[in-house]
């Protein structure tokens, strides 16, 4: 469950608030859906300037125009990448993250399948695949 992973994430005062109610809020991560051409990020595109956004915020972050729901992906290019060597929540270390610029879409943060072994590089092509077991958006390096 995404919720349980989130609750483990670093949170101030966890030691002296052991009796506090567990954190509960909607999953803030972008939605990954199965679209006509494979997996896609469910985001929004500005109806005024066309700017794509990975979130469902009501207004465009660039121009303030009204946003309309849109799907992005699955293909994209790695803009930057790192392999994290510290466990985070339910994620065991190491794991690899990448900022992926989806074709004609937004920049999204995703895990890279088998990343620590493959050591992906900037400018490599990737594709969105199903979310990780922890519910994180995920890509695989294109073959």
């Amino acid at each position: 469950m995404p919720g349980s992973a989130l609750r483990v994430a670093s949170r101030p005062h966890k030691l002296d608030r052991a009796d506090a109610a567990p954190l509960s809020f909607p999953d803030p991560r972008p939605s990954v859906v199965s679209g006509p051409y494979g997996y896609a990020i469910a985001g929004a595109r500005c109806t005024a300037c066309g700017h794509p956004n990975a979130t469902t915020a009501p207004r465009c972050p660039r121009c303030g125009g009204e946003a309309a729901a849109a799907l992005f992906g699955p293909a994209g290019t790695i803009w930057a990448t790192t392999t994290i060597h510290v466990a985070s929540g339910n994620r065991a270390a190491p794991y690899t993250l990448a900022y992926v610029d989806l074709d004609e879409g937004p920049r999204v943060l995703a895990h890279v399948l088998d990343g620590p072994r493959l050591a992906p590089r900037v400018a490599q092509r990737v594709r969105l695949i199903a979310r990780t077991d922890n519910g994180d958006p995920q890509v695989e390096v294109a073959r």
Partner: peptide, 13 residues
């Protein structure tokens, strides 16, 4: 934890 990238495992480092 309500930040979408923090929630995806992106810590400050």
């Amino acid at each position: 934890p309500t930040d979408r990238e923090q929630a995806t495992g992106l810590l400050f480092p």
